[in-house]
Amino acid sequence: MATTTTPSAAVRLDWLRVLAIAAVFLFHSALRPTGLAVKNPTTYPALKSLPRW
């Protein structure tokens, strides 16, 4: 009779990987270079209502 075990260590590592990727994404999205952005002199009122990333 075969016994089945839950891969708890693998599941924990998967969640740790998900949290690490989310942390890296949030960290990099918080970094906003101020002098490296290319600015367009034409502005669009519809885009001003969007949140600034």
Rank of each mutant, 00 (worst) to 15 (best):
M1Y: 03
M1S: 15
A2C: 09
A2E: 15
A2V: 15
T3W: 01
T3E: 04
T3Y: 00
T4Y: 03
T4Q: 10
T5V: 01
T6D: 07
P7H: 01
P7G: 10
A9Y: 12
A9D: 05
A9V: 11
A9S: 06
A10G: 07
A10V: 08
A10N: 08
R12E: 08
R12K: 09
R12T: 04
R12V: 05
L13H: 07
L13F: 03
D14F: 11
D14P: 00
D14M: 09
W15H: 09
L16W: 01
L16T: 08
L16E: 03
R17C: 07
R17W: 11
R17E: 04
V18H: 02
V18S: 04
L19T: 14
A20W: 00
A20F: 00
I21T: 11
I21A: 09
I21H: 05
A22S: 05
A22P: 00
A22L: 12
A23F: 02
A23T: 08
V24D: 11
V24R: 13
V24P: 02
F25E: 13
F25R: 10
F25N: 08
L26K: 08
L26V: 15
F27W: 06
F27H: 00
F27K: 01
S29D: 05
S29M: 02
S29P: 00
A30P: 00
A30C: 05
L31S: 04
L31R: 04
L31T: 06
L31K: 11
R32K: 08
R32E: 06
R32W: 06
P33C: 10
P33I: 06
P33S: 13
T34H: 14
T34R: 12
L36Y: 08
L36D: 11
L36P: 02
L36V: 03
L36C: 07
A37N: 12
V38M: 03
K39R: 13
K39S: 14
K39H: 13
N40A: 12
P41L: 09
P41D: 15
P41Q: 08
T42M: 14
T43C: 10
T43E: 15
Y44W: 15
Y44K: 03
Y44T: 00
P45I: 13
P45G: 15
A46K: 00
A46L: 10
K48D: 12
K48T: 09
K48H: 14
K48I: 10
S49P: 00
L50P: 05
P51N: 11
R52W: 12
R52G: 01
R52S: 07
W53E: 13
